[in-house]
Design a binder for these strands. Structure first.
Lengths: 111, 111
DNA sequence: AGATATACCTTGACACACGAAGTATATTGA
DNA sequence: TCAATATACTTCGTGTGTCAAGGTATATCT
């Protein structure tokens, strides 16, 4: 992971919600997808990931259920709620705003 | 300040270094400039600002000196060091990278 | 039988942001 | 003249998110 995680701090929840916008999924798979999508540049540490799930669940943005007993280790699936979708939309707008702001603040040219 | 500060967490140092790339300056003025540049959308809380100066100074990225005794309250000026300029360049690249990464991770389309 | 991959969980420590409160000086205006 | 406001810096304590470290458990591969 070549990216310093602190620069993504605060966006963890949005990243997870984005994955759940594509459909129910479980932690390990979500993290794998993120790693694939970033060409191995970024992935959550497990503690960060599961802490985030707890936080999102407590906030009512996702719900959780155990997957059917199939082969392999048990999986805990997560589903985004309406409130979660709402938050996701808001966070995406915030990101657009943050992006523009930082672009402006990291530019040394005179305005 | 309409922006949720947590989404900018981790970029405080880079923002300050950017201001100092334009020349020596003191805390209050730096913050004013940032507020102007963002149309009042963002500015550091004083505790955050002065904590950051201490951190940057301890890391050898900036140096500090008291301004000449002019009228008004005393000012503590900061100057960016070579190490600071180096860090600034690196942080700017990190930001480009982070930007691209987040844009990808917050997109619900299939790749 | 042992290694590896999958999959989840908890604890404790640390860093950053910030609310709150304080210090001090110069200017503005009633 | 004296209170309010703006300028300017400082410190303390608290909260939150990240993560290193450690743990549990199942299935597959050699």
């Amino acid at each position: 992971m070549s990216i310093s995680a602190d620069t993504l701090r605060g966006h963890t929840d949005t990243i997870i919600l984005t994955q759940l916008m594509r459909g129910d999924n479980y932690g390990y798979e979500i993290n794998k997808t993120i790693q694939q999508r970033t060409g191995g540049q970024y992935g959550f540490k497990e503690a960060t990931l599961y802490t985030a799930f707890k936080r999102l669940e407590a906030a009512g943005l996702i719900t959780a259920y155990w997957g059917e007993d199939g082969p392999g280790a048990r999986r805990r699936y997560y589903s985004i709620t309406d409130a979660g979708r709402e938050t996701w939309r808001k966070n995406c707008q915030d990101w657009q705003n943050t992006r523009a702001l930082l672009d402006a603040l990291i530019n040394i040219e005179e305005e």
